[in-house]
Design a protein around this nucleic acid. Structure first.
Lengths: 107, 107
DNA sequence: TTGTATTATTGCAATATTACGATAATAAAT
DNA sequence: ATTTATTATCGTAATATTGCAATAATACAA
């Protein structure tokens, strides 16, 4: 007990939950929003911008990255993070598909 | 430490994270989906359908309800849960607005 | 009122998440 | 090779979440 069960749900349902988890922490929402506003896809500035420790930001970036939402390119010593638009679009499409199906069925 | 900080983010960002949290567990996604397929908005059947303990389902229903996504009407001894479509629609609209803004800005 | 069915709450144990300091790893510059 | 700047990882503490059994509360029926 304590751990979420995933074996009793369909793959689609687990996928939606996993997607939502990325956005289920304000730091990650803020990071995504901030990255999108930066012309040159800054990296360590995220730490200054958001106000959490560097280790914490790195941890959140890992979660976002593991979900496939980032492209990271080295630029000098720093890493230039950028949104993976295709993946981001896929998230939006799948979530909308779930929303539309669910609300159209409703009693 | 351990608790999420919310004071350092905008209200919009916290709102999006709170919304996403509802969908960030497969049981809640499954519950919402199931409720939407039921003509007559069944209640305790959710327990049978999903396969978690009654206490656990009730806990998840509370999370969904606290987010304003349910309407519950008494029907006999049982409660007839139904999706609050207006609220559900608002979730979809706000999330889409975040997605659209974010992806259009990207580098 | 008593019994029955349904849902909510409480208490607890297990696991996950969040946050940070310290440290390691990496890449470029000197 | 050494230094410097940047990012990732490790270890740890605090809090949150998940899940369940047991129990309480609620609503109706007899």
């Amino acid at each position: 007990m304590g751990a979420s069960r995933t074996d009793i749900y369909t793959e689609e349902i687990n996928e939606i939950a996993d997607m939502a988890k990325v956005f289920a922490h304000p730091a990650r929402v803020a990071i995504l929003q901030y990255i999108s506003t930066q012309e040159s896809c800054i990296c360590n500035d995220i730490v200054d911008e958001i106000g959490l420790a560097q280790a914490t930001i790195s941890q959140h970036l890992k979660v976002i990255n593991d979900a496939g939402l980032l492209k990271g390119d080295f630029q000098g010593k720093s890493i230039c993070y950028c949104l993976n638009i295709d993946r981001f679009q896929k998230f939006q499409t799948l979530l909308n598909s779930f929303f539309n199906k669910t609300k159209s069925n409703c009693c």
